[in-house]
């Protein structure tokens, strides 16, 4: 797993957030125990607005099938079948009570979804001799998301949420590939890398966009969270969620260049978030 600059920034924010608890009422003291650890009262309106930062741990998978059977195929690219990576996530939230314990929870996200994988195997040069290759690839994308969830409080702090999540692709899915011959030879002698103009170098980097990327994805989300108090009307809310996307990331692709098809391209995500909620 590689951490992008954004991920490191977000992680740093989370770790540096000062967790300042305050004393709050109990059955003995209307203003709470001095220095005590307590919980925030529900706001009178019950409406909560807030923002959150977090990390998406993206889990990409696809099925690769070689088109021509009965001939040797390179193994350097087997890592295409899966990829993962952490990238940041930002969101604004609104939370409305439906009953004492049930809430309607809406979230507008900006989700950076980067994921990568690397492999080591052989490919064939133009004379069909096997060549050992280090290969890695990275996909970078940004989605704007809308989530509509029901949130249920098991206790005044501990809650679960579940609902539907829509993700809208902002721009393209950038696809960066890096190949490197282990023997230091000219990588352009391997047909694919030759086509992309890497003549004379043992290593080459190629950046394109994922063709046929879907402009939106629909998914289901299940999460758990815990509300802690920072002040009389502010909650600090660590959360963990799993986002299962039912829509493919991109349409199936048949590449005669690669002599390979890529199908069932899906992205799921584990999302860790730290939110500040403001009771109104």
């Amino acid at each position: 797993m590689r951490l992008s600059k954004w991920s490191i920034i977000v992680l740093s924010i989370i770790l540096c957030l000062p967790i300042v608890m305050f004393s709050q009422e109990d059955v003995l003291r209307p203003k709470g125990k001095p220095g005590g650890y307590n919980y925030v009262e529900q706001s009178k309106l019950g409406l909560i607005l807030g923002f959150e930062v977090g990390l998406n741990y993206n889990l990409f998978s696809q099925t690769n099938t070689w088109l021509t059977a009965g001939v040797p195929h390179p193994t350097a690219y087997d890592c295409h079948k899966s990829a993962s990576g952490a990238s940041p996530h930002f969101a604004l939230i609104a939370d409305l009570p439906l009953s004492e314990k049930l809430f309607l929870h809406g979230r507008f996200d900006v989700d950076v979804r980067d994921y990568s994988n690397s492999g080591n195997g052989y490919d064939f040069d133009q004379w069909e001799n096997p060549v050992i290759l280090d290969y890695d690839y990275e996909l970078k994308s940004t989605y704007l998301g809308l989530a509509f969830l029901l949130r249920y409080e098991f206790t005044p702090e501990f809650f679960a949420s579940a609902g539907i999540d829509f993700q809208f692709l902002s721009g393209d899915i950038e696809y960066k590939q890096t190949g490197s011959r282990v023997d230091g030879g000219d990588i352009s002698l391997i047909p694919y890398w030759g086509w992309v103009e890497c003549r004379g170098y043992p290593a080459c980097e190629v950046t394109t966009n994922v063709p046929e990327a879907k402009s939106s994805m629909t998914g289901l989300e299940l999460g758990l969270g815990y509300k802690l108090a920072l002040s009389e009307s502010i909650y600090l809310v660590p959360q963990a969620r799993f986002q299962l996307f039912l829509t493919k990331l991109a349409s199936d692709e048949v590449s005669t260049v690669w002599d390979r098809s890529a199908t069932d391209r899906k992205l799921n995500s584990v999302q860790l978030a730290l939110a500040l909620w403001f009771g109104l």
């Binding site: 009422e25 059955v27 209307p30 919980y39 009262e41 004492e100 314990k101 005044p156």
Partner: peptide, 14 residues
């Protein structure tokens, strides 16, 4: 008994 944020709906704080 007294309770702060009990499961049964209350009139306000404790």
């Amino acid at each position: 008994f007294a309770a702060y944020r009990h499961g049964v709906t209350g009139e306000g704080r404790t």
